[in-house]
Structure formats: C-alpha cells, structure tokens
Amino acid sequence: MRKNKSIFSRKFLAVPYAVFMILFVVIPLMLIIAYAFTDESGRITLDNFRAFFSGGHNINTLMFSIFIGFLNTAICLVLGYPAAFILAKKEFGFGTATVLLFVMPMWINFVLRTAATRDLLFAIGISGGEYPYLATMIGMVYNYLPFVILPLYTTMTKMDKSLIEASYDLGANKVQTFFKTILPMTMPGVISAATMVFMPTMSSYVISDVMGERKISLIGNSIQLYFDQGLWHIGSLVALIMLAIIAIGSFCADSEPQENARGGLW
C-alpha cells in the first residue's frame, strides 16, 4: 500500500516537464504540419508544395544542402577520427585537458567564432567574396570538428582493448585489425558524431551567410528568408521537409542521441 503511494507521487514530478514539452515542443511541431498544408486563409491546400517545387531553385538548394552536409560530415570524420583515437590512447599522454581544449572554442560564441575564422581567412587571402565555397567549407569544419571529436573520444576510451590484442594475436595486420575490430567497435561514436554534424550543417544559415558573404544559400537560408518575409506557410513546408529528412536519418542511424554527444566531459 505504502509502496504504491510513493511510486504515485514520484511519477507526478514529471508533470510540469510534460506540460512544458507538450506546449512548446509537440504543439509547435503540429502547427508546422498544419501550416504546411494550409494557406493564409486557413484553407487546406497543396499550393505550398507546388510553390516550393516549382522552378527547381528550392530543389537545387535542398540537394546542395544535403551535399554540403555529407561533405562536411566526411571531412570532420576524416580529421576527427584519428585525433580522437590518438587522444584516447594512453601511451601518447594526452588527457581530458587536451580534449577539453578541442571543446573550448564552443564556449566562445558561435557567431563570434565564425566571424573570427572569416577574418583569419581574409588575412591569408581566402576571402569569402572570392572563394565563397572554400570559405564556407572551412567555416563548417572549424565549427563542427569538436562535435565529432567528443563522441568519438568517449566511445574510444570505452573500447575493449583486449579485442584489438586478440586480433593481432590471431595474425591480423594493422589494416585488417582497424577495419574488422576497431572501426566496428567505434561505430556508435561515428554515428552519433555524424548526426551531430550532418543536420546542423545543412540547416544552419549563419556559417554560409558569414563565411560565404551571402553568396551561398542553404536550406536554412530559405527558411530564414521565408521567416523574414512573414511567409509562415511555405516556411513551415520547408521545415516539414527537413523534419522528414531528420526522421529518415534517425531511422537509418537507429540510435538515440547519446548523453556523451555534447556533454560527456562534465
């Protein structure tokens, strides 16, 4: 009897949280769906779809955003994977402090950091006006590399080292050991890193604006533009398309966002 009562009271601690999440997460998402399928007068319509898909401009932007998203994810993984691996290996003598050094730029405001990167590139002759694509890509990598190193580092420190030794004992060489043992073991980290990079890359409009001097338009720029013009309905449609991509992505990754993705160090 007492036990039932106590469980009852603890469960209800989540009520304020649940109310908040329903009001400010669930209902707004439903509104996005409702807005995407209606027009200004509230009539149900598919005009937003037609407006979005006509002319091909928006589709190009979408495809280009997906491409940039993949490219940035790939570059960040290629640069970040070995770094995380070295940081996680005890024999190199790097500790949590060095990992924190990689994360510390995150504490300097994102816009300020991006503007600083632009000033550096400008000083060495890569101005966003002349090389908008190169400058934007560099800005993206700068910003998202920490998001890759952190989850990879966390997975690698938890890696079972005896399996790697076993692989060598069984006669595998370094390359085989890497592809057959180390990579599969660190795959959760790779997936969580990729989800931390892909979506924000294609949806953020700040980096492309600041680095590319407004010469590059990503799908995030489209939403922001519709927002500025007060075109809520078509803006919602673009948001809905992004939601669909996220849903597909998380279905493919089949993993929950991990606690270690952003804050594993504290």
């Binding site: 707004p28 996005i32 989800t195 995030g220 998380s250």
Partner: peptide, 23 residues
C-alpha cells in the same frame, strides 16, 4: 516522454525556432 525529450535534440535548430515562432 523519452521520445518527446529527444525531439529538440534531433531536430534542426531552425525548425525548432520556426515552430516556436509560429506558436
């Protein structure tokens, strides 16, 4: 509840921002 908690984490920030603005 855990599913709902994950929405803002997985979601693109701009979608979250737009959805709140519309609300």
């Amino acid at each position: 509840m855990e599913g709902i908690s994950n929405i803002p984490v997985m979601n693109a920030e701009i979608v979250t921002a737009l959805s709140l603005t519309i609300l």
